[in-house]
């Protein structure tokens, strides 16, 4: 079994396997990565860092491409608004 770690996504604790991308964790948690400029919820699309739909706030930093970031123990992630 892969090693597990926990992070907080929109205030809730989520446990994922080590090596999980933040995008995947947000999908697992059922949370949109960002709210679009007209207010639509969005999630990751391309999985390879080009579409920028997976931008979220990671450890307080807005507009982070979560498909390119791996989860870390204690990370806080919020939907980018």
């Amino acid at each position: 079994m892969p090693e597990m770690l926990s992070l907080r996504i929109n205030g809730a604790t989520v446990r994922v396997a080590n090596g999980t991308s933040v995008s995947a964790a947000m999908l697992i948690a059922g949370q949109p990565t960002r709210i679009s400029v007209t207010g639509e919820p969005r999630g990751p699309v391309c999985g390879m860092g080009i579409c920028f739909e997976c931008r979220a706030i990671v450890n307080g930093m807005p507009h982070q491409r979560t498909c390119q970031l791996l989860c870390e123990e204690g990370m806080t992630v919020e939907t980018n608004r």
């Binding site: 995008s23 964790a25 639509e40 699309v45 391309c46 999985g47 579409c51």
Partner: peptide, 30 residues
């Protein structure tokens, strides 16, 4: 990269690219 073409509803969470979904699965999405 993949070519995406717009159609009604393509911006919903749960709509991915083909390679996109595969990449997300390999990054831990079950």
């Amino acid at each position: 990269r993949e070519r995406f073409l717009p159609f009604p509803g393509w911006t919903l969470p749960g709509v991915f690219g083909v390679g996109g979904l595969q990449a997300l699965v390999r990054a831990g999405y079950s």
